[in-house]
Design a protein around this nucleic acid. Structure first.
Lengths: 159, 159
DNA sequence: GCCGGTATACTCGGATATATTATGTCCGAGTATATGTGG
DNA sequence: CCACATATACTCGGACATAATATATCCGAGTATACCGGC
C-alpha cells in the first residue's frame, strides 16, 4: 500500500499558495518549477483540487491557481480526498460468503464482517486525525520566517 | 491508495485456522478452495505470514499451515505488516528542499516537514487501532456458532 | 510378525508472466490582455 | 486623446502513452508417509 505522491504535492502547493497570498494567481508551470515537479502532471493534481473547491483556477493570461477558501477552512483530509479519492483503502470483498456449502443468505451474514469493522474503525481514526489539522495549522507550525522567505523567493522568480 | 487484497485473505485464513484448531495443519490448496481464491497466489500470502512467525508451515504429506501463536497474541496489525510490508503509506520526498534558490543545508530544514509530521501522526493512530485488536477479539465477535459451523464444514471437506 | 530401505505422493518455496494502477505527456478550447485603428 | 474591435499569447482542461506495482501462475526442492522386501 502506497499513497499517491500527488497528496504531498497538493499539500505543498496549497501551502505555497497560501504564503504568497491571493493577489496574483500562480500558474501551474511556475509551481512545477518551484518544486521541480513534472509540469503537465502537476496540473492534474491542481485540477482535482479545483474540482473539490479547494483551489480556484483563473484562466487566461496572468491566470493560474489560488486558494478558494481560507487556510483555516481546509483540512489535510480535504486535500487527500480531493487528490486521492474518497475510497476506503480496505475493501471488503466478503470472501466469508464464498466457497461450497455456504449459504449467502444465512442469518450470520446479516451482521457485517468483523474484519471489515476493525478496518473501518482504523480508517476512521486515520481520517479523524487528518481532519483535525488544517492548512492554517501547518502554516503556523512552519519555521519562523518561512512566509517571508517564500514571498521573497516568489517575487524574485517573477522578476 | 488501495490496500492489498492479501490482507483480507490473510486475516480470514488465520481465523479459519484458529477455528479448526491445531490438530491437523491445513494445506494452502484447501484454504484456497475454502474461500475460492487462486491457490498459487494464496500460498504467497501464507508464506509471508509464516516468515513473520504468525503461521507455522508443516512440509511433507499431511502438511499445511497452522497458527504459530495463540490468537490472543496476534494483532490485526501483525498480519497487515506481515502481508503488506512495514512501510508507511505516506512517503515524504522532501520536495520543500527542491527548486532553484533553495539551500538544502539551511537551518529551517533541520526540523521535520510539518506535512510529514501530520501524516505520521495519522498513520500512528491507524496502526494503534489495528494493534488494539487481536485475532482472539475477532473470534469472539463472530456470530454464535461460527466455530462449530466451521469445524463441521471442515470435517465434511476432509471426508 | 517386525524392521529397514525405497519409492512415492504430497507439501512448501521461490523464480517467472500478466493485469491493473499510477505516473507522465500531449494538444485543443477558452479567456484576459495588449495592440492597433478609427472617431 | 479616448473607445472599440481584433489579434495574440497565455492559461486551464481533458484525452492519450509509459512505468511501476499488484496479481496470478508455474515448476523445482524437500519431507513425511506408505509400501515392499528381507530377516
Amino acid at each position: 500500500m502506497r499513497m499517491s505522491e500527488q497528496v504531498e504535492w497538493g499539500l505543498h502547493c496549497c501551502l505555497t499558495l497560501a504564503w504568497i497570498g491571493d493577489e496574483h494567481p500562480m500558474p501551474a508551470a511556475r509551481l512545477a518549477d518551484w518544486f521541480e515537479l513534472p509540469p503537465a502532471y502537476l496540473t492534474k493534481c491542481l485540477q482535482a483540487l479545483t474540482r473539490a473547491g479547494i483551489l480556484q483556477s483563473v484562466p487566461g493570461a496572468r491566470g493560474g491557481f489560488r486558494l478558494a477558501r481560507r487556510p483555516a477552512d481546509v483540512t489535510v483530509m480535504d486535500v487527500l480526498v480531493a487528490v486521492d479519492g474518497p475510497d476506503n483503502p480496505f475493501r471488503c470483498t466478503e470472501i466469508r460468503q464464498r466457497g461450497a456449502g455456504v449459504d449467502p443468505s444465512a442469518p450470520e451474514f446479516r451482521t457485517p464482517c468483523a474484519i471489515s469493522t476493525v478496518m473501518h474503525r482504523a480508517d476512521l481514526a486515520w481520517r479523524r486525525e487528518l481532519a483535525s489539522h488544517t492548512l492554517a495549522d501547518l502554516l503556523e507550525s512552519a519555521p519562523a520566517g518561512a512566509a517571508e522567505r517564500t514571498r521573497r523567493r516568489y517575487a524574485q522568480l517573477r522578476g
